[in-house]
Every structure is written in C-alpha cells, then in structure tokens.
Nucleic acid binder design. Structure first.
Lengths: 163, 163
DNA sequence: TCACTTTCTTGACTGATTCCAGAAAACATG
DNA sequence: CATGTTTTCTGGAATCAGTCAAGAAAGTGA
C-alpha cells in the first residue's frame, strides 16, 4: 500500500465521481495501479490494467490517462527522451529525479523551501502557472550495474551544469 | 548579429575545430542559424540550413544537431509535448520559459540567485548532474491573440530575459 | 427499464526522430 | 595537389509514443 498524498482520503471511485467522471473498470484499475506504482509509463499502466481486467485496448488506457490528467486526478510528467510517466500525487509542489539512462523516476520534495524556483510569475508577458524542476542524473543501477535492460541509445545531453 | 554568451569568442568554425569535429557546410550553417535564432526546432534549423545551402537531408540536420549537442556546442531542450529545441547558449545555468500553447521558448536567468533548486546532489543514490527548470505558461500572443496556430514560425526570440 | 451520454474497441495514421548501407566529402599526409 | 582514411551526408525504411475516427458497449439519471 503506497502512502500517497492524495490517497487515503477518497477511493479512486469517489475521486472519479467527485470530478463528474464515469466510474469504469479501466479507470478504477488504472488509478489503483498508479496508486501502488507511481511513475509508471502508459505501457506499464496498460499491463497493470490488463492484469486485472483481461483485454483492454491501448487506446482505452491512453484515454483514461488523458481524461484523468485533464481532471487533475493524476499528473503526467514527460522526461525528455523518455515516454511519459504518470503519478497520483497531485496538487503539491514536488519535483522529480530522473535517470538519464533508464528513465527511472523518483519524487523529490522541494529542496529550497516551499515554492522554490517559482519566482518569475510574469516574465516577458508570459503568464507563468507552473515551475517544473527535473534533476537529471544516473540511478544507482545505471551507475554501477552494467546494462539495465534494453539498449538505451547514448544519451545526448551532457551539459553538466552545476551552478 | 546576436550577442550570445558563447558567441563572439570563437566562430562556429573554430568551435567545431576545438572539439575535433570536421568543419562541414551543414554544421556551419546550422550553428550560424542557431546563433541568430535560438530555440529553433530541428525543422526550423533544417529550413534555415537549406535556405543557404540548398538541399540538405533531414537526417543530416539531425546528425549535426546530435553531434554538436554531444560536444556541448549546442544544448537541446525538450519541452513536454513539443518538438525539441536547440540553442547555442551553453555552459551557464539558465532556464526556460515555455508557452503551453505554441511552444515559444525564452531564456530565463536563475531567478532565485545563484543556485536555485539545485540542492539535491546525491539523492537516493542518484548521481545528479543537472537541474532543469521549466516555467510553463502562456506567451503574450497566446494569451491575448486568438489563434496563434498557423503563425507558428521560428518566433525569433529576444533572449536574455532579466528577472 | 429506457433513453442518453460517455467511454471502449479496432485499426489506421501522424510527427518526431532514428537506423541502415552506400556515396560523398574533409583533412592529414606524401 | 594527389591519395587514402575517416567521418559525414543521402535516401529510404522503420520505430516509438501517441492520436484520430467510427461504431459498439457500458454507465447514469429519470
């Protein structure tokens, strides 16, 4: 059982209802899967959903994920060079730690206090509504272990900025 | 001529040489284009390169961009949901302001002083080497103007936003 | 239960980018 | 300025993640 910020208050079913969304088996399965497996890719969610329900179309999964994202029931993060990942922890200002090599993603709470990095609220005429922070690096497995799974193409980013 | 941080010191030709890369027409054209049109997409770079050189394959452009990115001559940014963009300003820790709607991208210097948001250097066993910050919002055109859709041009940006 | 929506299925399709094999060009030499 | 390596470019096919479309199926309110 994951201890998620937004979980425990309401069941997936109630949360769907609260947003005026229909309660369907694929939606429940996807939300439940994500509650226990945060940062899953669409493909992983699809696998998890099929594990419980049997055949479910890929399109249905994307639809569920998009609908729930739009309703803020889940949050989508799209690390450059990796497929999108989803999580149920929404509404708080937390950021992510992503492995350049395998895409593994972990949560990082705001390092510099409450709302860091969200200084510029109206720069150059832009109406800024979100500050996204991604920490890039290598996860333990990719640092030490040799080949973690499939062949990931050589990562291109090597900026290594360390202000 | 744009006054870019990394430009003015060395010409594109010298910068290629300094990295041990061959000096080819497509590379020069791409680097020059980017110096004057920061945050261009691969497609825009291709168009700019073809403007000077005539026919150049798409693959050549991607190759040039990848090679130069790997050599840190340019930096690639990949805003979620938008094609990757490239810029010649490398080596300093500046971040980006991206329009949710049209993808227009602007530079933002660190808002919170020197090293904002780059607190965690070794979290959870990860070896963090870069903190990427993206401010999401709507650009002036998309806020007020109706349909920016078609006018999705290179959007020659005025860089160096000071906060 | 019935009608009315919304959602799911199937399958084709897109856009951005990469892979492949061979032709062409760059550049350190002789 | 020829020559031979080595690296890069061409052209086309392929991949990957994700979307679009039309009709069938299921959830919901009366």
């Amino acid at each position: 059982m994951t201890q998620d910020v937004t979980r425990g208050f309401e069941s997936p079913r109630d949360r769907l209802r609260a947003e005026g969304l229909r309660v369907t088996a694929p939606r429940l399965a996807a939300l439940e899967w994500l509650a226990d497996h945060p940062h899953s890719t669409a493909e992983q969610v699809a696998a998890g959903v099929r594990e419980r329900l049997g055949a479910v179309s890929t399109q249905a999964v994307y639809d569920v994920l998009n609908t729930c994202t739009r309703a803020s029931l889940i949050r989508r993060i799209e690390p450059a060079g990796h497929p999108a990942r989803y999580e149920t922890r929404t509404g708080d200002n937390h950021h992510h730690l992503v492995c350049r090599r395998c895409g593994r993603t972990e949560d990082v709470d705001c390092a510099v206090g409450a709302a860091p990095c969200l200084e510029p609220s109206n720069v150059d005429g832009f109406a800024v509504d979100e500050a996204e922070v991604v920490f890039w690096g290598l996860c333990p497995d990719c640092r030490y272990g040799g080949q973690p799974g499939s062949s990931h193409r050589p990562e291109v980013t090597r900026s290594a900025v360390r202000t």
